[in-house]
Simulated assay, not measured.
Amino acid sequence: MIQLYTDSSPNGFKITIALEELGLPYVLHHVDIDKGENRRPEFLRLNPFGRIPVLVDDGSGIALFESAAILLYLAEKTGRLLPTEEKARWEAIKWLTVHAASVGPLVGQRVHFELLAAERHPAAIERYRRLTDDAFSVLDSHLASRPYFAGDDYSIADIAHFGWTHIAQIIRFDFSALPHLSAWHQRIAARPAVQRGVTLPAPATGA
């Protein structure tokens, strides 16, 4: 059985979406970050960084943190959500890595400085607005000629990026002027498994 330790966050939603898409049975453990449950010793034994999500596969004995690693593991385990054709497969891995190394951290920093920081830092707010807008523009350009990040195949790259575009819409980081990114977002949002995944362990109401 798969054990998933998560909270209602963009990185957590990536994994609940993937598990719902794959139809894998799993046990959901709600780690309430607002209550500091991610800093408890029993959770830190799973992830010493104190971040969700964490996946433990009882069958294989494999325990993973970092959403990109978990998505790759689930794709490899099932042979799904990652194209088998070599070029498309590497496109999916490339755009998954772009998200993990660039887009996700940039949007996260914008969330911090624009919404969460105790003190306002106008220069930092402007910097991360510009960088996230630039990143969304790159995504929009890429999606102009293909329905999904890897081409014709829906993959873990799409799930990764959707985790943050879902939250971006909730907190009004507007990308509606980018037609290809917006259309892609609506395609992903319409999937039944995605609609289930973004409600687990609870729907997000903010960043």
Rank of each mutant, 00 (worst) to 15 (best):
I33D: 01
D34M: 13
D34V: 02
K35M: 05
K35D: 06
G36Q: 06
G36T: 11
G36V: 07
G36P: 05
G36E: 07
E37L: 05
E37I: 07
E37A: 10
E37Q: 15
N38M: 01
R39M: 14
R39L: 15
R39I: 08
R40G: 06
E42A: 15
E42S: 11
E42I: 02
F43Y: 15
F43N: 02
F43C: 03
L44Y: 12
L44D: 09
R45F: 00
R45T: 11
R45P: 00
R45D: 13
R45S: 12
R45L: 10
N47M: 05
N47F: 04
N47V: 03
P48C: 08
P48A: 13
F49D: 10
F49R: 15
F49I: 13
F49L: 15
G50E: 10
G50R: 06
G50T: 11
G50L: 05
R51T: 08
R51M: 14
I52F: 03
P53T: 01
P53E: 10
V54W: 06
V54M: 05
V54C: 10
L55C: 05
L55P: 02
L55M: 13
L55I: 07
L55T: 03
V56H: 14
V56F: 04
V56D: 05
V56K: 09
D57A: 07
D57L: 09
D58P: 00
D58Q: 15
D58S: 11
S60Y: 04
S60D: 10
G61T: 08
G61L: 13
G61F: 05
A63I: 00
A63P: 00
A63T: 15
A63N: 00
L64G: 03
L64S: 10
L64Y: 01
L64I: 02
F65Q: 08
F65T: 06
F65A: 14
F65N: 14
E66D: 14
E66M: 11
E66H: 11
S67K: 02
S67D: 10
S67W: 02
S67P: 08
A68Q: 09
A69V: 14
A69W: 09
A69R: 06
I70D: 00
I70E: 00
L71R: 06
L72A: 12
L72H: 06
L72F: 00
Y73W: 04
Y73G: 05
L74R: 08
L74E: 04
L74N: 09
A75N: 03
A75F: 12
A75M: 07
A75P: 05
E76G: 09
E76P: 01
K77L: 15
K77T: 04
T78W: 07
T78K: 07
G79P: 07
R80C: 04
R80V: 01
L81D: 10
L81M: 14
L82F: 07
L82T: 06
P83N: 04
P83I: 04
T84A: 14
T84Q: 14
T84S: 14
